[in-house]
């Protein structure tokens, strides 16, 4: 896989986290009723960063859950997935405003699966979606509420998100397949 271009560097990502944190606080008039859920894998560290940033802004404590959507996918017959990650939502989500976080928004199928999974845990007041990159090509009527960067891509391009928690650096690149 040949690297094509760096889309975001570490400073860009940090600024985006700060900006989105403020947007979330503004739109929800604080952070009292918020719960963060990160989609495995890259959504989890992103959710943690935004959550911690908001905790500083509003001087509060916010809960963070992890969600693996393997068993809610609509394409099990096409892909075999043996590395299933943990789901950990050890608190009540009924009536809460959920901030759902993922790294890249593409077809929308992951988010559809994540929303189904969340509904099995309880009935939240609302679900708002945060993504670091929106690369287009939606196959379902799904949109993000908070977008780090809109990145028009073609279908034979691949967006790679690296985060220091898992890859030792913060960087988003766009590559040819």
């Amino acid at each position: 896989m040949r690297e094509k271009a760096t889309v975001l560097n570490a400073d860009d990502i940090e600024r985006i986290i700060k900006r989105i944190s403020h947007e979330i606080v503004e739109r929800n008039k604080g952070s009292e009723n918020l719960i963060f859920i990160g989609i495995q894998k890259k959504g989890v560290p992103l959710a943690k960063r935004i959550k911690e940033s908001i905790e500083k802004i509003t001087n509060s404590e916010i809960k963070l859950g992890k969600l693996d959507i393997s068993f809610y996918r609509d394409d099990v017959n096409e892909k075999i997935k043996s590395d299933v990650n943990i789901t950990d939502i050890p608190f009540e989500i009924k009536g809460k405003d959920i901030i759902l976080v993922d790294d890249v928004l593409f077809t929308g199928r992951t988010i559809r699966a994540a929303m189904d999974a969340i509904m099995d845990f309880g009935r939240p007041q609302s679900i708002q979606l945060v993504v670091l990159i929106d690369r287009g090509h939606r196959e379902l009527p799904i949109r993000a509420d908070y977008v780090g960067k809109n990145l028009p891509t073609s279908l034979n391009e691949f967006v790679e998100v690296k985060l220091s928690e898992t890859d030792n650096e913060d960087k988003v690149t766009i590559c040819w397949i």
Partner: peptide, 25 residues
């Protein structure tokens, strides 16, 4: 592969602790 199956069983154990003990897979 045996370890993968056991990890998967772990994920299902978590599902069995939920209120809705069912996934649509």
């Amino acid at each position: 592969e045996i370890n993968d199956l056991m990890n998967m069983a772990d994920s299902f154990t978590e599902i069995l602790k939920r209120d809705v003990k069912k996934v649509p897979v």
